[in-house]
Simulated scan of single mutants.
Amino acid sequence: MSDAAYPRPKHIAPEEWQARTELAACYRIFDRLGWTELIYNHISLRVPGEPGHFLLNPFGLHYSEVCASNLVKVDVRGHIVGASDWPINPAGFTFHGAIHETLGEDAHCVMHVHTTPTMAVCCSDEGLSFTNFYAAQLWGKVAYHEFEGITVHLDEGRRILASAGGKPVLLLRNHGPVTIGFSLANAFSLMWLLNRACEVQLATLAMGRPRAIAVPVLEGCVRDSLNFNPKFGAGQDAFDAMRRLVDRTDPSYRR
C-alpha cells in the first residue's frame, strides 16, 4: 500500500513515523485476532533514535481506533512527551517502563493481553504445559510472577522484571501474559505462539491428561522454530502477512 494517502506529519521524524505505523498496525492486528480487552491492555514500542522514549496506546480508545498519529509518546516513567489529546492507562506502563529501561534494545517491544486461554493458564497452578506443538517452541523461554493486584506501583514493575529473569515470556499469575521482543514482530510471534499453546492446552485438558514430550525433543523444537529463525524473518514475515490483511480491510491505522 502506498503511504501517499497517509502522509507523515512534518513534525514527526521518518523513523518515528515508521514505528508509529507499525505499532498502530499491530493494535489493529490484535483487534482482528480478538485479543482486545475493551480499552485496556498495552503494546509499547521503543522510539528509534530517542533513548528513553516509547509509544503506547491512548487510554480510552478501542484497539480498532488506534492509529499512527494518536499513539502517545512517553518517557520511561510514563510521563507524556510533547502533546497528546489522550492520557495513558496508569497500569499500562508500570512494568513496561521497568522492562524497557533495564533491558534496553532486548526489550524493543513489550506486549500484554488478557485473552481467555492465556489468563486461564496463568490462573492454574501448573502454568504452561509443554505438551503441544506450540508450547514446545517456548521451552526454556517462560517465567512467572506472583499476583500482587493491579499493576500501578513502580516497585512491582521492578519485581516483575526480576521475575522475568531474562526470559522473553512472562506469565503474571492470576493475571495474564507479557512478551518481550527484540522487535515488534518478535514480541508478536511469542504472543501468538503462547496464545495458541494455551488454547490447545485447554482443549487437551477438557479431553484428559496431556501426553508428555521428551526434553530433547522440546529443545529441538526451540532450535528449529521458524518463529525465531532469521532466515524466515524471525516472525517478521508472519507479522507482515497479518498487516496486509489489515491493509485490505481498513488501512486507516496509517493516518
Rank of each mutant, 00 (worst) to 15 (best):
G97E: 04
G97Y: 07
A98W: 05
I99L: 15
I99N: 06
I99F: 12
I99D: 01
E101W: 00
T102A: 14
G104P: 12
G104F: 09
E105I: 01
D106F: 01
D106H: 12
H108A: 13
H108T: 12
V110R: 05
M111W: 01
H112V: 06
V113M: 11
H114Y: 02
H114L: 07
T115K: 03
T115F: 10
T116Y: 10
T116D: 10
T118I: 07
T118F: 03
M119G: 01
M119D: 00
A120Q: 10
V121Q: 09
V121M: 07
C122E: 08
C122D: 10
C123D: 10
C123Q: 11
S124N: 06
S124L: 06
D125R: 14
D125V: 05
E126G: 08
G127W: 09
G127N: 11
G127A: 09
G127P: 06
S129Y: 00
F130A: 01
F130Q: 03
N132G: 11
F133T: 13
A136N: 09
A136M: 08
A136K: 06
Q137D: 07
L138E: 04
V142F: 09
Y144F: 14
H145P: 08
E146T: 11
E146Y: 04
F147C: 11
E148Q: 15
G149F: 10
I150V: 15
T151Y: 03
V152T: 15
V152R: 13
H153T: 12
L154Q: 14
L154H: 12
D155C: 00
D155I: 06
D155N: 14
D155K: 13
G157K: 09
R158M: 06
I160H: 01
I160E: 03
L161K: 07
L161N: 07
A162G: 00
A162D: 15
A164C: 08
G165Q: 03
G165H: 02
G165M: 03
P168H: 04
V169W: 04
L170T: 04
L171T: 05
R173V: 04
N174V: 01
N174A: 07
H175K: 07
G176N: 11
P177L: 10
V178F: 15
T179P: 13
I180H: 11
I180C: 10
F182Y: 06
F182C: 14
S183V: 01
L184Q: 14
A185D: 08
A185M: 08
A185V: 11
N186D: 15
A187L: 08
A187M: 06
A187F: 07
F188C: 15
L190T: 02
L190P: 12
L190E: 02
W192V: 10
W192D: 13
L194K: 03
N195A: 00
R196S: 02
A197N: 06
A197R: 08
C198V: 11
C198I: 12
E199R: 09
L202M: 13
A203C: 03
A203S: 13
L205K: 15
A206D: 14
A206P: 00
A206T: 09
M207Y: 00
G208L: 08
R209P: 05
P210Q: 11
R211E: 14
R211M: 11
R211D: 08
R211N: 04
A212N: 07
A212M: 09
I213L: 14
A214K: 15
A214R: 14
A214H: 13
P216M: 03
P216W: 05
V217S: 13
V217I: 14
L218P: 10
L218I: 11
C221Y: 04
V222W: 08
V222N: 05
R223G: 00
S225N: 11
